[in-house]
Nucleic acid binder design. Structure first.
Lengths: 268, 268
DNA sequence: CCGCGTGATTGATCCAAGTCAAGCAATCCG
DNA sequence: CGGATTGCTTGACTTGGATCAATCACGCGG
């Protein structure tokens, strides 16, 4: 807990401007965006209006997209790559979450027209859609279906944060590590071997412990059915691991209907 | 962390049925509810429909209103008293939050039509409105203003949980206690003396520490400008306390416009 | 191929916070 | 009034996890 980070590479304003001037919006982007849970239910007209001022951007790894405390100006949706949400206070910082395609972030700040509570930076090279917050609020007012999607997304984000907070308070570090590894296995289709999606330093920060302690914990977990070498995780004894983790749908599960909120079929 | 609770008083099904049969809805209740941030912006017709099947109930202290894992059936809004949200897992439990008038809880589960992630029980004798979740979703679809209020409320709940999680990860136990005490002082109008709103056992659980450790920490905080005897908190040196806490608007502050979301004036 | 930087590991040590076990104070109630 | 219950405090002790300090392994550019 309270571990410090290595300083990330900072890019200059010029790099940023350069990216802004060359929006890598592709012809295939809009139809793809249209299928996302957040946007698939809204009326065509609202969608078109919403995206007149939106644009897609490509960012290099390690770029700070959002700084906590700044006013919310754009809703961000990750198309490719991955983005880390992190919080900082008084020379400490920690990872609060990770966003991968096709998740949105800082929706809550945009809806409330408030300042960001967390910062965000790219973990790897990423493509992100930026939608002006004011347009978002307009679309919300005009389109009931979109409003429902937004509320569903917000509720999902809230519930995700509750799950995380429960994990922090109810489990110790070892249990958090084990449950994380088991959950990742599930995400990979109950694979018995998979690669860690983030570096160990970051993972430790996310799990609320130091990198050193994570390293040691991983060693001791070999006795409980899971081995890690490099980024490769191998489950050697799933039953034993499950007995240790005592998985709970309310902490480790995902919400059902995480994809299309009200209509199960989706428009295609 | 991971501290156990004393077992709470459990009430029988019969008590619960008794309360249901005698809904203590008062003539002054509906107009009052109408003024709440969540309901003040909606159309009169939607409001009336929404509350045809809603009812107000009085509960004794220590009654479990909601059990985690159950499907969401009613939105709850606290009118009087206070309610504890708590989470349990594998013989451990901890307080996750407190709801006082006129806060809503489990809105997210209702919107997603999902199961509760947290349990809830009354801390003291409390009056609560219960609104059927299905009606809530209907009203959401029919009334854009209400949808906006719901989204704002959800966004606020999310942000509150983010603040809590940040506090857990970035601050140690002593800092959490100190910041909590300072925050409560602010809530009491920057009073230099006030009463703790919850018992110390519960407070410790909320702050992610044991009751014993809270007790010790409070004693050591006397050197840093704050004294506690019984439930009475007295700030003896605010400057020193602030220096210790290093308050941060992104963790300790409240969202602006927590009351009426879009329209600042409000209907009064 | 080497030198470097970054990230991961390991070991030694320390400290914050949990645990266990009594004591104490206030409240409730027969 | 006295006993029981409940909640808070205190002390002695243990321990999980942080910190500090090297070392190691890898990927990369020169």
């Amino acid at each position: 807990m309270c571990g410090l980070f290595a300083a990330y590479v900072e890019f200059s304003i010029d790099d940023y401007q350069f990216l802004r001037i060359n929006p890598p919006m592709r012809s295939t982007d809009l139809p793809e965006i249209r299928r996302l849970p957040l946007f698939c239910s809204m009326a065509a007209a609202t969608f078109d209006t919403l995206f007149t001022h939106a644009y897609v951007q490509q960012f290099p790894a390690g770029l700070e997209l959002i700084r906590q405390g700044d006013p919310a100006d754009f809703l961000h949706v990750v198309l490719e790559g991955s983005v880390e949400l992190y919080a900082a206070w008084s020379d400490r910082q920690c990872m609060m979450g990770e966003v991968r395609p096709f998740g949105a972030f800082i929706l809550a700040a945009c809806i409330r027209d408030a300042t960001y509570l967390m910062s965000a930076r790219t973990i790897e090279r990423s493509r992100v859609i930026l939608v002006p917050a004011a347009d978002l609020r307009d679309a919300f007012r005009q389109d009931g279906e979109f409003a429902l999607s937004v509320a569903t997304e917000l509720a999902g984000a809230y519930r995700g944060m509750v799950r995380d907070a429960k994990g922090l308070k109810l489990r110790n570090a070892r249990e958090r590590v084990a449950s994380y590894l088991l959950r990742q296995s599930r995400l990979a289709g109950d694979a018995s071997s998979y690669l860690l999606p983030v570096g160990k330093r970051l993972l430790a920060s996310y799990l609320g412990m130091t990198a050193e302690n994570l390293s040691r914990t991983l060693r001791t977990l070999e006795e409980d059915g899971i081995g890690v070498s490099g980024a490769r995780v191998t489950i050697t004894n799933r039953a034993r691991l499950i007995a240790l983790v005592r998985p709970d749908a309310l902490m480790d599960g995902r919400d059902p209907a995480d994809i299309p909120p009200p209509l199960a079929g989706a428009p295609r």
